[in-house]
């Protein structure tokens, strides 16, 4: 499924607004903020339609998936937005992750626990927010929004001069960041190791560069650790390294591919936008001098002119003069 969908759900008591644009959206937040009520309304509307007194406005069918026959039901669904409450026992099951891969549906999941088997974006983790004082109108705001892509930066005045740069990527991405940051750059070798690198570091200023499009399951723990430890570490989370290369305009990329990725990254083919950007870059650079491979960075990307182009699209606060 592709596309961006506005969802409006209401009865005479509560009113929700929500936009989903990737295959996986996560809802979190305090108890009693209305997450389960949202799912209850959708379930009730599904069962009784308009006579439920509930209105659901969305161009796609919204449905609730519970523990009952979930595999059977999920395998028969297409082109739907599927809501799952935290009480679903299968959320952490490998079989569920396997069914999400290649699914023609979008999933909205209520879960405070990290779902490590699912590559969801830090951009699609939302907390509920009341729009008005009456608490009738509820919408969802990003927990880690655009500003937080460079998380913690507000705590640091002006530019960050990192003593250590940790990169999630250990192949092409690391080679490129090493050209930007030199010896200060260290590869974590996977998103699961980013915490260990931050924890072991005794440096004053650390910059961690991660692939935001699939870092959702780790961002909560790392941000919590940084908040209680007071470590000066900035997390920079562009969608992915390949996204940076595409955005740097090294090869011709239609603007819509990057700005409206939701219309292109089909959930049936790509489990995350990170996979989509990688595929797009590989396919479209194949017959050019910038032929891209994830394992080793093509020498042509290492020229000072290209590195300069990449630096220009990174936030200026994290680029050393």
């Amino acid at each position: 499924m592709v596309g961006k969908f506005d969802i409006e759900i209401y009865n005479n008591r509560v009113h929700y607004f929500l936009t989903v644009k990737r295959n996986i959206t996560i809802l979190q937040g305090d108890s009693a903020s209305g997450k389960t009520e949202l799912i209850r309304l959708i379930g009730e509307y599904e069962a009784n339609g308009n006579s439920s007194g509930i209105t659901v406005k969305c161009s796609q069918k919204c449905t609730v998936l519970t523990n009952v026959d979930w595999e059977l039901r999920l395998s028969s669904m297409t082109q739907r937005i599927i809501f799952i409450d935290e009480t679903a026992r299968f959320l952490k099951a490998r079989s569920f992750a396997e069914m999400v891969r290649g699914s023609d549906n979008y999933f909205v999941i209520v879960s405070r626990d990290a779902l490590v088997q699912l590559p969801y974006s830090i951009e699609e983790i939302y907390g509920i927010r009341n729009v008005s004082d009456s608490s009738k109108y509820k919408t969802y705001k990003k927990v880690y929004n655009e500003m937080y892509k460079i998380y913690n930066l507000t705590d640091i005045n002006g530019a960050l001069e990192p003593d250590l740069v940790i990169t999630e990527d250990s192949n092409s991405g690391f080679e490129c960041y090493k050209l930007i940051y030199g010896k200060k750059c260290e590869a974590a070798g996977g998103k699961g190791n980013v915490y260990d690198c931050i924890r072991k570091s005794d440096k004053n200023n650390t910059l961690a560069i991660v692939d935001g499009a699939a870092f959702g399951s780790d961002v909560g723990k790392i941000m919590r650790y940084l908040s209680v430890s007071g470590k000066k570490c900035v997390l920079y989370a562009p969608e992915s390294f390949e996204f940076l290369l595409l955005k740097a305009n090294i090869i011709d990329v239609p603007k819509a591919v990057l700005d409206e990725t939701y219309d292109y990254a089909d959930s049936k083919r790509f489990m995350s936008w990170e996979e989509y950007y990688t595929d797009y870059l590989i396919q479209n650079s194949q017959k050019t001098v910038f032929k891209y491979a994830k394992t080793k960075l093509n020498e042509n990307y290492k020229s000072p002119k290209i590195i300069e182009k990449i630096k220009r699209i990174m936030p200026e606060q994290i680029i050393m003069k």
């Binding site: 108890s31 009693a32 903020s33 389960t36 935290e86 009480t87 626990d113």
Partner: peptide
């Protein structure tokens, strides 16, 4: 809310182990 129901069970039922992930920071 799921959080309050879980707290009530934690308070009154010592026979079971309850899932505190149903409870938010509040």
């Amino acid at each position: 809310s799921g959080g309050v129901k879980t707290l009530i069970l934690m308070n009154n039922d010592s026979e079971h182990i309850f899932n505190a992930s149903a409870c938010g920071d509040n």
